[in-house]
Write a protein that binds this DNA or RNA. Sequence first.
DNA 1: ACAACACATAAGTATTTGCTTATACGTTGT
DNA 2: ACAACGTATAAGCAAATACTTATGTGTTGT
Lengths: 109, 109
Amino acid sequence: MTSATTLEDKIFLALADPSRRAIFESLTGGEAAVKDLTARFDISQPAVSQHLAALREAGLVQGRREGRHVYYRVEPRGLTPLVDWITHYRAFWTERVGKLERLLERMDK
Amino acid sequence: MTSATTLEDKIFLALADPSRRAIFESLTGGEAAVKDLTARFDISQPAVSQHLAALREAGLVQGRREGRHVYYRVEPRGLTPLVDWITHYRAFWTERVGKLERLLERMDK
DNA sequence: ACAACACATAAGTATTTGCTTATACGTTGT
DNA sequence: ACAACGTATAAGCAAATACTTATGTGTTGT
């Protein structure tokens, strides 16, 4: 059987690596081609591509081909499962976040 | 030089492992001794202790010795750095979270 | 058509990781 | 005091991971 890795697993795993997180953070500054990212970090182009693949499979980024370039950008809703996970354990947060949650619930009605 | 691992790194790394996340989630149900956790999961006691050590170093749980037992519980503010990290990239979230943020700001006034 | 470019994939390797068993440490009850 | 218990640490090992270089796959300009 193939490993039953959930999306949640993939997200946590994708963000666990500092290089990958750095690439993700860099993309929040705007779309960038693999070439650009390779220039920004001190790792090889294949390494960048591999990181991007992991981020893509986690739903955190998206690639768009344009000519010979592939431009990657942050997937806006990609972090949602992570937010949901945290929200699920909101009882252990600060009081501030607790209040915030309650407001949200009232808002939904 | 020794790896200059930040707390943020440790948190992401700690939560990356499904077993460790399961232990953390289990602790949100209330305080538990190592023995209890060992009973709940299908791994050895040393494995549990090792996971707990990683979680503790990440500031996610806290241990309290009582007799020969050590009771672990979730550190309420432990997830804060993770929340902060996500919040920093909130511009890429769903609209729902955007609304939530705005509500919070109004609330603070 | 073809050379150069941009990227992805393959294959190999050193390191890290998550587990195990064995053992040390600390506490308690009798 | 000492045996049993609960936990932490040590040592070792198999698997996963993050990189590398080499090569494959598309695309463009001339």
